[in-house]
Amino acid sequence: MSPDTDRADPGKPGTSTDRDLHELAVKQAALGQVRGAAAVDPVNVPMIRHWLDAMGDTNPVYLDQGIAPPAMAQVWTMQGVRRAAGQHSPVDDVMSALDAVGFTGVVATNCEQVYHRYARLGERLTSAIRFDDLAGPKRTALGEGYFATWTITWHAESGEAVAEMMFRVLKFRPPPRAVPREPYPLRPAVNRDTAFFWDGVRQGELRVQSCADCGELRHPPGPICPHCRSANRAYRIAGGEGTVYSYVVHHHPPVPGREPPFVVAVVALPEGVRIVGGIVDCPPEAVGIGMAVVVTYRQMDDELVLPMWAPREP
């Protein structure tokens, strides 16, 4: 069950969640520019040379004139591998709030950089961040989402703005992805005599074979009615209620795909046949012969559904 099902849909405009998000965005925007820590290193030749080399940029102007490539603006104030995150930014709260209501996906959509001048060797830049805007919710190809926009400005020690960058991301709710499950290891063999049962289980029906000629019910099923020799087979959909006729609590040895202790029971159906199944939603010590149970269908993997039995309320 999705953890969101009991919550108001946060993707709907005008819902309380949507209002809360916009209120938070307005509050964060009102903080204005929030200054971060100064760059660890001043603008320097080794980092420029490394950057040019990696980019394959052979423009000699930077090292000749002692200036940094303008697109390096953000590089100077990047966090390192182990350096602690910088000061709390006004963007963080908005991102966390979006994550918390399910907009966990993120993709950058726009990056606009303005260079007032090129930074010079020896200058130590400081970034300042300003939350600009939250737009949404909007339907996008990736799913429902909000566009969050902020601006980072890089200042020289004098306070002069050297460069700024508008950055926009889409925070989206990833569509529920069918994660392929590990195949459940305990699979039934199925043939033309038994397929109707497993087809039924997949459709939420507990099918008990009946003879199309004499009406005799039979489980487990077989190809010929032992009562009248008819091969005309039909089935009746059982009501789904039963009584525990006998049971075991399996402890040892470990069984693939099952977590011990688990309970397996012979369940007597009011229709007059018995069937074996697991007991679920009930601690093993609460199971007893005579307990009223009701069928419940459990998806074991992408293909297999098993009928299990849960306690029935009186």
Binding site: L186, P188, P220, V255, G257, R258, V276, G277, M300, L306
Partner: peptide, 13 residues
Amino acid sequence: LEMSWHVPYGLMT
């Protein structure tokens, strides 16, 4: 097929 009414539930020892 006979085992298939039991083994999937872990009733297999």
